[in-house]
C-alpha cells in the first residue's frame, strides 16, 4: 500500500448494533430501533439539536462525539486547522425519499423546509463543524462503492491545504433509518 503523509490518531465505527473505538467494541445492543438515541443517552450528550437531525447527521454526530472525546484534548475551542472530509454511497437518499413523499400528492402538498435542508448530503459536515467550531474545509464525496485508497487520497488532498493540519474523515453512509454505517478517523499530517 502506498505510503501516506498522515497518521491515524483514533478511529470509530458505528453499525446498527455496535460501536467500536480504535478497534475495540465499546457499545453493543440488540435494540436496533432505538440504538442511536440509546448512544446519545448513554453518552449523556446535552445537544437537543440531535433530535432534529436526519439519520445521516445523527450517525455522523454520534460517531464524531465518540471519536473526538477519545482525542482527550480541550473541545469546542475554535479550530482553523481541521477539515471534515466525508465519503459515502447513498448521498442523502433516506431523507430524499421522505421529502419526495411530502410533495407527491399535489392536493396535500406540504414540503417542510426543515426536511429539505437535510436532502443535501453535506449537511452532516456542517452539523459537525458547528458543534465543534471547526472552520477548515468541509467536503462530501459520493462514490459507487467504498474504496479506502480513494478515501485516503482525498484526505491527503485536504492536507495539501497550507492551513490544515488534521482531518476528521472517512466513510459515512445511511441507506435507511435502520441501515447505516460510520467508519471515521482523526488523521494528522506527518511532521
Amino acid at each position: 500500500m502506498k505510503e501516506r503523509n498522515f497518521l491515524i490518531k483514533h478511529s470509530v465505527k458505528i453499525e446498527p448494533n455496535k460501536v467500536s473505538l480504535d478497534g475495540i467494541d465499546v457499545l453493543l445492543s440488540e435494540r436496533y430501533n432505538t440504538f442511536l438515541s440509546d448512544i446519545y443517552h448513554e453518552k449523556r450528550l446535552a445537544y437537543p439539536k440531535f433530535f432534529k437531525m436526519d439519520i445521516l447527521c445523527k450517525v455522523g454526530f454520534l460517531a464524531t462525539e465518540i471519536l473526538l472525546e477519545a482525542e482527550n484534548i480541550e473541545r469546542f475551542v475554535p479550530r482553523r486547522d481541521r477539515s471534515i472530509i466525508f465519503c459515502n454511497k447513498s448521498s442523502s437518499v433516506s431523507t430524499d425519499l421522505k421529502f419526495t413523499h411530502d410533495i407527491l400528492d399535489l392536493d396535500n402538498f406540504y414540503p417542510k423546509p426543515s426536511l429539505f435542508v437535510y436532502t443535501l448530503p453535506n449537511i452532516v459536515t456542517g452539523e459537525i463543524a458547528i458543534r465543534n467550531k471547526y472552520f477548515g474545509e468541509t467536503n462530501l464525496f459520493v462514490m459507487n462503492d467504498r474504496d479506502d485508497n480513494v478515501i485516503s487520497e482525498l484526505v491527503e488532498h485536504a492536507l495539501m491545504d497550507e492551513e490544515i493540519n488534521s482531518v476528521v474523515g472517512g466513510w459515512i453512509d445511511a441507506e435507511s433509518e435502520n441501515d447505516y454505517e460510520a467508519d471515521l478517523c482523526i488523521f494528522e499530517i506527518k511532521q
Binding site: 471534515i84 459536515t125 458547528i130
Partner: peptide, 11 residues
C-alpha cells in the same frame, strides 16, 4: 483554491 466552513448554521 480553498474551501472553508463558517460553523454558523446549516441553512
Amino acid at each position: 483554491g480553498a474551501t472553508r466552513n463558517d460553523a454558523n448554521h446549516i441553512s
